[in-house]
Simulated assay, not measured.
Amino acid sequence: MTLTGLYVPLITPFAADGSVALDALERLAHDVLGAGASGVVALGTTGEPSSLSPAERSTVVDLLAGVCTDLGRQLIVGTSDPAEVPASAAAALTLVPPFVRPGEDGVVAYFSALAARSPVPLVIYHVPYRTAQPLSAATLRRLAAVPGVAGLKLAVGGIDADTIDLLAGPPAGFAILGGDDVVISPLLALGAAGGILASAHLATASFARLTRSWDAGLGHRLARLSAALFAEPNPAVVKAVLHEQGRIPTPDVRLPLLPASKESTRTALDRLSETL
């Protein structure tokens, strides 16, 4: 299995009555896959999984698994329990254990145990500004050597020394996917295999082209769009823009998130028009 190119961590659209708008979700999946995405992520942070009921989460995964199977594309499922992931999925996106700060050896032991019992490969989500657990380039290479670990969603908040070290000598067969939308262009220039990018709900074809063939000018324009889309907690602005486009029935998010402001929505629409 090769993980490369663009993966869109899909929002969970809501209908006016508060239920999951499954028809809109299916259309979004077809839209981004038809525009060149390699696959989609179900139940990533952008999908607000902590606000969904178990039944809602299961329905979302089943729907997206069906779309990806029909179109021959890859599904990645965000979860802390890979046993819940369908066998047809390409991988489980699994967060470095947050809050407890187990240390680097603890992280390696945790993923070694998780991968050993997972029915699908793991993509490790490394986002230290949320988990409070830093990992060195040396530790990331140790994780890459764990059987059953296929890749890394790298979201350290920028380009640090460990990122440069890791990308200067990436482990063979280990997919390093950028997870900070604003800096995806320099990550690709340094050698990342692709990205898991919420911004790619919009201008999907441009993001897909960027992940296939890095272009500095396109990268700069998309970075401005990403900055606008992340001006408020994700996915509020993304949802507001999709609603303005008529692609989802409401811009609603669930608490603790709040809807995007009109100002942020207008700025993101302006940036989008500059990109297209």
Results as ranks from 00 to 15, higher is better:
225 L>P: 02
9 P>V: 05
221 R>W: 05
123 V>F: 00
276 L>Y: 03
208 A>T: 04
66 G>N: 14
265 T>Q: 06
262 K>F: 00
104 E>S: 12
65 A>H: 13
119 P>G: 00
99 F>M: 15
156 V>R: 14
231 A>D: 10
130 R>H: 10
237 V>K: 08
12 T>H: 11
33 L>N: 10
160 D>C: 11
227 A>Q: 14
224 R>E: 14
10 L>W: 07
235 P>A: 06
48 E>A: 05
240 A>F: 12
6 L>A: 06
259 P>R: 13
200 A>M: 05
132 A>V: 15
243 H>R: 14
107 V>I: 12
128 P>W: 11
108 V>G: 09
108 V>I: 15
187 L>M: 15
155 A>G: 12
106 G>H: 08
269 L>I: 06
163 T>N: 10
56 E>R: 10
215 D>H: 06
132 A>E: 13
229 L>V: 14
168 A>G: 15
146 V>K: 12
28 L>M: 03
87 A>V: 14
176 I>V: 15
237 V>E: 09
227 A>P: 01
228 A>T: 11
202 L>R: 04
151 G>Y: 02
176 I>D: 00
209 R>M: 07
223 A>W: 04
28 L>R: 01
95 L>S: 10
261 S>T: 15
42 A>I: 01
11 I>T: 15
96 V>P: 05
33 L>A: 09
178 G>H: 11
217 G>A: 13
167 L>R: 04
261 S>L: 04
130 R>D: 06
254 R>V: 07
61 V>A: 03
142 R>V: 11
43 L>F: 02
23 D>P: 12
94 T>D: 01
250 T>L: 11
247 R>S: 02
54 P>G: 01
177 L>G: 03
11 I>N: 14
167 L>K: 10
211 T>K: 02
